Simulated scan of single mutants.
Amino acid sequence: MKDVYITKIAKFLPNNPIDNDKMEEKLGVIAGKASKARRIVLRNNRIKQRYYAIDDKGNVTHNNAQLTAAAVEELCDDDFSKEDIELLSCGTSSPDQILPSHTAMVHGFLKNGNLEINSPSGACCSGMNALKYGYMSVKTGQVNNAVCAGSERTSSWMRSDVFENEVAHLKTLEENPILGFNKEFLRWMLSDGAGAMLLENEPKGENALKIEWMEGYSYAFEMETCMYAGGEKLEDGNLKAWSEYPAEVWGEKALFAMKQDTRLLGDNILVKGVDSLKHACAKNNINPNDVDYYLPHISSYYFRERLYEELKLQGIEMPWEKWFLNLENVGNVGAASIYLMLEELKGSGKLKKGDKILLHVPESARFAYTYAYLTVC
């Protein structure tokens, strides 16, 4: 088995940052009324700015595959060209289409010759699963290098026109229709961007990060769906797929909008997350004393204090001085968030040889968690 190192990390954030006051202007007003939920959600998530692939005139500037390709190209220089990539593995929860796969579309924009591609599906963990596929491929010697990416282009899923048919339909049933909070919640939570990592079997460059191990856990066997798109959640907790509805109903129910069962989220995301972290640490014989930087992907600062308390409650307290977050300034970019955090930490000048970094990525879709443990070389 080969050792595997993250030798470069890059990001691409589209256009200028958008502050809280301009979000609704970018995404659009639903049914001519300003959102009442927006201030509540923003007050809790405490995100100050984010990025959208939308210009000042409301036009889309990049699709998801273009964002990802741009991040990948940022990895390239005179020493490593895009033609040198042996494996391309990209994860996202907001692909531009059902088929072809997301990574196939990224490869189409890169136009860099024949190579292996991999497209893990899912939500936030898809970026980590993309990384794990690259990690295993380099470790087993199948390839000498791999480029892995996480990205989101959720703004187009959250624009007002996605919901207008549903609101119009509701008006035929009630005088003052209100879009369900489970749909509007995510409008004020998610943003666009991409991150990419170059994995190699040698520790090239400054502050190369050796991947010591990666672990993943799913609680779908006992938990019902929490975040979803392309279906409707039924009273029994099951999902009814978009393909089982008549086409004329797709707009009436905004079936392709992302939705969140906030009750399930608050009750379970942290409990299951810490439980899985304990399993990962026990399996690999580490504890908080073996961590210098803790990078948890949290969707909202609402969960920051609560995660700390849950860690403490379950006997794996992570001191505040070990935490590193950048949610406030880049927003919740789903599958790309952990890439953006690690890119910022690596470029901060804080890291020194021997430092240990723990990546902790939850996914609320049906409660999955992925971890990576890194050493600075």
Rank of each mutant, 00 (worst) to 15 (best):
V249N: 07
L209A: 09
M189C: 11
E232S: 05
K240N: 00
C226H: 03
M158A: 06
C148S: 00
W242G: 00
I211Q: 08
L198F: 00
L209N: 12
W250H: 15
Y217R: 14
E224R: 12
L173T: 03
N165E: 15
K233A: 02
C148K: 06
R159L: 02
F221G: 14
D236M: 03
D161H: 11
M227D: 00
G237R: 10
V249P: 00
L170I: 04
G251D: 12
S155C: 13
E174Y: 01
A241T: 03
V162R: 13
K253C: 04
G237F: 06
M158I: 03
E252K: 14
A257Y: 01
M258W: 09
G251R: 03
L239D: 06
A146I: 02
L179D: 05
R187W: 02
E232Y: 11
T225W: 11
D236C: 02
E202K: 12
W157F: 12
M223K: 15
K233N: 06
A168K: 15
Q142L: 12
R153N: 08
E202M: 03
E175G: 03
S156K: 00
V143R: 11
E152I: 02
T262S: 15
E252Q: 14
N182D: 15
F181E: 12
D236Y: 08
E175M: 06
K240T: 06
G266L: 07
